[in-house]
Amino acid sequence: MKAIILKQTGFDGLTFEERAIPQPRRQEILIQVKATALNYRDLEIVEGRYHTAIKLPLVPLSDGVGEVVAIGEDVTRFKVGDRVCATFWQRWIGGSFRMAEPSYQRGGPLDGLLSEYAVLDEQGAVFAPRNLTDIEAATLPCAAVTAWHALVSEGRIRAGETVLVQGTGGVSLFALQIARAAGARVIVTSSSDEKLERARALGAANGINYRRNPDWSSLVVEMTDGRGVDHIIEVGGPESFEQSLKAAARRGQINVIGYLGGSEGMINPLDIFRKQVDVRGIPVGSRESFEAMNRAIEAVDLKPVISRVFPWADVEKAMRFFAAGSNFGKVVLQF
């Protein structure tokens, strides 16, 4: 089989390699990969900027969907012919984050899915939603599960609440769609008026251009009649966190997802105290969250937003497109 291997950091470190098709052992399944999708974490690992050292060589990319083509002994959850998505945390079945094992993350330290075939632990896979294509289903394991885990598994979102999502990347757009499906109102921030219009077409009630409105939290408070928002999808890092605190309602929730604006900055804990805001990190989510989300995806026929699809061999071109930040939604690699 063919696989793309990251042998050293940098795009030049991505090389094709011919490997033997792996054989599933006890309680493992072999899938023929149909599609994978990019996440910011994948880009950081390739560029050597990820906050945790990842041992190379590595088959990159955490997300993916495939068809089961062989099973090991004692496999009970799947059969040949099933269509499955890999979980990001291969050994976080359910419960709190204490149950997740850091050394079992797909796409680093464990090999990812940028290969024609891959072996998965049967406990580290879920059935792909029946209403989604392979290209759509490939986008779910990281971005969609992160949004679901933040708003539903942890956030217990309710109809009538207000959600603020920052930007129009994968997690933010999934959060918009999940929030709307739950009956919540959504406010979106972006530096692009065009992307704000596209977010409104997906159901966002309001959009704020943060370049023109650097004090965007004041507008959020105004849009909510002085109350603030109940849930925030925080992807900017310390630079935007201060604004998020100002935009939050009393007892609001801030879900820290990423740090696109940088990892350095100052946060005054008194601001958290004054509003009694709940602040939590969201490290994707468990298989339990993934399966619950998939049931909801089928029930409401939610369709992931796809920005662009590349042949899987063009991973460097896809990553450069992704790094430029012009995408609206997910970037997918098709086999």
Rank of each mutant, 00 (worst) to 15 (best):
E116P: 07
A118F: 09
A118C: 14
A118N: 12
V119D: 10
D121M: 12
D121Y: 11
D121T: 10
E122T: 15
Q123H: 12
G124K: 08
G124N: 12
A125I: 04
F127N: 02
A128I: 10
A128V: 10
A128E: 01
P129A: 01
P129F: 00
R130C: 04
T133P: 05
T133S: 12
D134W: 04
I135F: 06
I135W: 11
I135E: 14
I135M: 14
A137H: 00
A138D: 12
A138L: 12
T139H: 02
L140K: 01
L140N: 00
L140F: 04
P141A: 07
P141Y: 05
P141M: 03
C142R: 00
A143G: 08
A144Q: 00
V145L: 02
V145A: 03
T146H: 07
A147N: 04
W148L: 00
H149K: 07
L151C: 07
L151D: 03
V152P: 05
V152S: 04
E154P: 01
G155F: 02
G155N: 06
G155L: 06
I157Q: 03
R158K: 15
A159N: 03
E161Q: 12
E161C: 00
E161R: 06
E161N: 05
T162F: 06
T162P: 04
T162M: 05
T162K: 08
V163R: 00
L164P: 01
V165W: 01
Q166M: 08
Q166P: 07
T168D: 13
T168R: 12
G169W: 04
G170S: 09
V171I: 11
V171C: 06
V171F: 10
S172H: 04
L173A: 11
F174I: 00
F174P: 00
F174K: 02
A175E: 04
A175R: 07
A175Q: 09
L176C: 04
Q177P: 05
Q177D: 10
Q177R: 07
A179R: 00
A179L: 06
R180P: 07
R180A: 04
A181W: 10
A181V: 07
A182Y: 03
G183R: 09
G183W: 05
A184F: 03
V186F: 01
V186Q: 02
I187G: 04
V188H: 09
V188D: 08
V188W: 11
T189H: 03
T189Q: 08
S190M: 11
S190C: 15
S191L: 13
S192Q: 13
S192C: 14
S192P: 14
S192K: 13
D193H: 15
E194F: 15
E194D: 15
E194K: 15
K195D: 06
K195E: 10
L196W: 09
L196M: 13
L196C: 10
L196Y: 14
R198F: 13
A199E: 14
A199N: 15
A201Q: 09
L202N: 06
G203N: 06
G203A: 08
A204Y: 06
A204F: 03
A205P: 02
N206P: 01
G207R: 06
I208F: 08
I208E: 04
N209W: 11
N209G: 05
Y210D: 09
Y210H: 13
R211S: 09
R212F: 12
R212I: 09
P214E: 11
